[in-house]
Each structure stands twice: as structure tokens, then as C-alpha cells.
Amino acid sequence: MSQLETDIKNLIIEALGLEDMGPDDIDSEQPLFGDGLGLDSVDALELGLAIQKRFGIKIDAEAKDTRTHFANVARLAAYVSASKAA
């Protein structure tokens, strides 16, 4: 697990108030929504805002591939890494 993935897992826990979880409880390939971690649309908004603030990137909520980027921690880490490099 990369440091960025760990940072994102910690951010998910902090931003969404999942105090009973630790980074090791979230699999990087586990879906964040639905049957995976169980996040909903409100969680997505809160997480998106937290990601933008923490990593200084812009997330276009209307972009068609935004859902793909938020599919799991691994994809979100790749998106953050690519956005910071751009």
C-alpha cells in the first residue's frame, strides 16, 4: 500500500467520522460505495471536498469519469497523483 493510499484512507476515516475503523480496515480495491464501504452521495460530496482541500486539486463533480475515480482507494490515489502532476 502506498503512502498516498494510506493518506486517503485516513482522510476517509476523518472526513466521514468513521472512528471505529483504521486504514487497515479499508482494502484499496474495495468499492467505496454500495456493497463495499457503503458510502452514499452525501459521503461522496464530503469526501470530494476533503480531497480537494487536503491535496489542493480540483474535482469536477459533473465530469463523466468522476465516478470511476471514486470507485475505490486505489483509483482515487491514481487520480490524485495524476492531478497533482498536471
Rank of each mutant, 00 (worst) to 15 (best):
S81C: 04
K9V: 14
R67S: 12
M1V: 14
S81W: 00
F33A: 08
K64M: 10
I57T: 13
G22Q: 06
A50R: 02
I57R: 01
H69N: 12
N72K: 04
E46T: 06
G56L: 07
V80P: 04
V80N: 00
D25L: 03
E5H: 00
A77H: 03
E5I: 00
A74M: 04
G22C: 04
A86W: 01
L32G: 06
L11N: 03
L32H: 03
A82T: 08
A86R: 07
E14C: 09
E29R: 08
D20W: 02
Q30P: 07
I13S: 11
S81P: 00
F70T: 12
G48R: 05
L32N: 06
D24L: 03
H69F: 14
G56I: 05
R54Y: 03
P23A: 05
N10P: 03
E46V: 08
L39E: 03
L16F: 02
L49F: 08
F55E: 12
N72P: 11
G36T: 10
Y79G: 08
V42Q: 01
N10G: 12
Y79S: 13
L39P: 08
D25H: 02
A15D: 13
D65P: 10
E5F: 01
R54T: 12
A71N: 05
I13T: 13
E29D: 15
A61M: 15
Y79W: 11
E62Y: 01
D65C: 06
K64W: 07
A71V: 11
A61I: 15
F33M: 07
D43M: 05
D65Q: 11
K53S: 14
G34W: 05
G22R: 01
L76M: 15
D24C: 02
A63R: 04
M21N: 02
G38Y: 10
D24N: 04
G22W: 00
A85W: 01
I8C: 11
L16R: 00
P31C: 06
D40N: 15
A78R: 01
P31H: 00
D65T: 14
K58A: 15
S41G: 07
T6K: 02
M1G: 15
L4M: 13
K58T: 15
A15N: 06
S83R: 09
P23E: 02
T68P: 06
D20A: 13
I12S: 09
R54N: 08
N72E: 06
G17P: 09
E46Y: 05
A15C: 08
S81Q: 02
S2I: 06
A86M: 09
Q3Y: 01
L45D: 00
I57G: 14
A77M: 10
D65I: 12
D25G: 10
A50V: 14
Q3S: 12
E29S: 13
S41N: 03
D7K: 01
K9C: 15
L16D: 10
D25K: 00
G34H: 09
Q3P: 08
T66V: 15
G22M: 06
S28A: 14
T68Y: 08
T66W: 13
D27Q: 05
S83V: 09
D20I: 08
P23D: 04
G38Q: 09
A77R: 02
E46A: 13
L11K: 01
